[in-house]
Deep mutational scan, measured.
Amino acid sequence: MQRVNMIMAESPGLITICLLGYLLSAECTVFLDHENANKILNRPKRYNSGKLEEFVQGNLERECMEEKCSFEEAREVFENTERTTEFWKQYVDGDQCESNPCLNGGSCKDDINSYECWCPFGFEGKNCELDVTCNIKNGRCEQFCKNSADNKVVCSCTEGYRLAENQKSCEPAVPFPCGRVSVSQTSKLTRAETVFPDVDYVNSTEAETILDNITQSTQSFNDFTRVVGGEDAKPGQFPWQVVLNGKVDAFCGGSIVNEKWIVTAAHCVETGVKITVVAGEHNIEETEHTEQKRNVIRIIPHHNYNAAINKYNHDIALLELDEPLVLNSYVTPICIADKEYTNIFLKFGSGYVSGWGRVFHKGRSALVLQYLRVPLVDRATCLRSTKFTIYNNMFCAGFHEGGRDSCQGDSGGPHVTEVEGTSFLTGIISWGEECAMKGKYGIYTKVSRYVNWIKEKTKLT
């Protein structure tokens, strides 16, 4: 034993070699072989497995989906700052455009905790909710729209109204504003409101030439003092309507412009014939205590009207009353817009006519005020429907199939267009061939041609 100890002390290297040989010859039971080890760690190889990531292109799944990435790591994937920024906006807080917040056709661009709407022409605001041009839906104005110097929408209202708090709607500024039905039992019968379409306001006024200088022999019209197929109006439903009495009662109609003036057809009036105007009328054979009678003290036909040349060209006249009318729910003026808007309103496509005229061709006159909704007829169809001249200051309205029309005794009465609950004068009943005849239409004086003249002559002093 002493000898062994001496050998170990003198030859430590020998001992180490012996131990190493023993270990190498022993069977290893701690580690699995290569094949079995792979069965336990069965993990798919990654895209760049075996390579240094710093030297390969980034992978979106590896960089940002398996674990949260930084902007720089995302930049490695896209290799483009702009594309990385677009991805980053949604990656950080989701897609803010998912709810489609942009209105009126706006395009949404996502941002971090926010979004941006790219608005089409005519709109602005956070969600493109603000109209900035009158060309689109009248700028959301209830009545009139004008573009300011910086191309912003400025709404306005006709006389007797003021802008509401929203700067879009119009509200009454006087007790009985024009064009409004205020009798409670008839307010439910107000005709369907007309909503502004998209309009090209630059070209809204037709490029028409008034044929002022045409000389033409007097034409022989049949029954051209021209509501057939209409309905009984309720008291106060058309408070701007008046009836004219002269040699015979209810020979023509008219509309209240203001307390002192009536507008009617020029062919209705004769110099030297006494005319009485009755406002607030409903049943011409009954006294309903809503009527107001006034005498006409002055007749002003349009300066281009000449019955000797043509009885229905420039067929418009103004009547001055001896005493002002007292405005109330049964006696209310009709609204008159400017030339541009009167023309736009007419193009809405349908209007209402009213009167006490004959209820059928050569038949009896109506006792109760009649009204009828009539569609506008395109000019080409209008011209083809008659052998008589249709001037540019006239328009056609009615039904091709016949059966409904204005008729004798309705002449001078109103053709009105309702705009968001307020009625505007767009025409004056003038003439036609018979009444409600198939293929024939009622012919009306186009008020847009005469609004400046009306307003100039009827100013209240």
Rank of each mutant, 00 (worst) to 15 (best):
I390N: 15
E420T: 14
Q90F: 05
G122V: 03
C141Q: 00
A266F: 02
V447Q: 00
N213Y: 08
G253L: 06
E35G: 12
C119I: 01
A192F: 05
V416E: 03
S25M: 13
G58R: 05
W118N: 08
V227E: 07
S156M: 09
T133Y: 10
L23S: 00
H415M: 08
G21V: 14
N343C: 03
K446Y: 02
H34F: 05
C128D: 03
Q219A: 13
D111L: 15
G432L: 03
N100H: 14
I299G: 04
P172A: 08
H415E: 00
V4W: 07
T186H: 06
N100K: 13
N36H: 11
I309S: 09
N328P: 00
C396E: 01
Y115L: 05
Y115P: 12
T81Y: 06
K457F: 07
I316C: 00
Y161P: 00
T194I: 11
N203M: 09
G280Y: 02
N138A: 14
S350I: 09
Y352C: 13
L41F: 11
V331E: 01
V326M: 15
T81L: 06
C28H: 00
E27K: 03
S217R: 07
P414S: 06
P12F: 09
G349M: 08
F224N: 08
Q219G: 10
L52F: 15
I316H: 00
V374Y: 03
F144A: 00
S220H: 06
A308Q: 11
G442Q: 15
G160N: 07
Y161Q: 02
F224E: 03
P175I: 05
N222R: 05
Y450V: 01
G160Q: 03
N59L: 03
R62N: 09
K274W: 03
G363I: 07
H303Y: 13
S411F: 15
F78V: 14
G355Q: 15
T445K: 00
G398K: 12
K362T: 09
T461F: 11
S107A: 10
F78C: 15
K39C: 06
E73K: 05
L383P: 03
A207V: 04
H289V: 11
I336P: 00
D111K: 11
Y450R: 01
P175F: 04
L60V: 15
V202A: 12
C134A: 02
R75Y: 11
F123Y: 07
P235A: 11
Q408P: 10
N80A: 09
K68N: 15
S220C: 15
Y201D: 08
E433T: 04
G236V: 07
P172R: 05
G351N: 13
Y371E: 12
F221V: 05
D338I: 03
T215Q: 03
P175H: 06
P301F: 12
A307Q: 12
S169I: 05
I309P: 05
C157K: 01
E54W: 05
E208D: 07
G413S: 14
Y305T: 02
P414V: 13
I284C: 08
Y201H: 10
D150P: 07
V195S: 05
L60F: 13
I210L: 10
L327Y: 03
L376A: 05
N283F: 09
H267E: 02
N113D: 14
E61W: 07
N59M: 05
L103S: 07
L383M: 13
H361I: 14
S49A: 03
F348V: 14
T215D: 03
I284W: 10
T81W: 05
C335W: 00
W118Q: 05
S365Y: 14
D200S: 11
P197H: 05
I7L: 05
F345R: 01
D111W: 06
A164P: 02
L19K: 01
E129D: 12
E73P: 15
E171P: 03
S49Y: 08
E116R: 04
I7F: 11
L23C: 04
H289E: 05
S25K: 05
D223A: 08
F121S: 11
K311L: 12
E53P: 12
T194Y: 12
D405C: 10
G106M: 05
W431T: 05
S25F: 12
K126S: 12
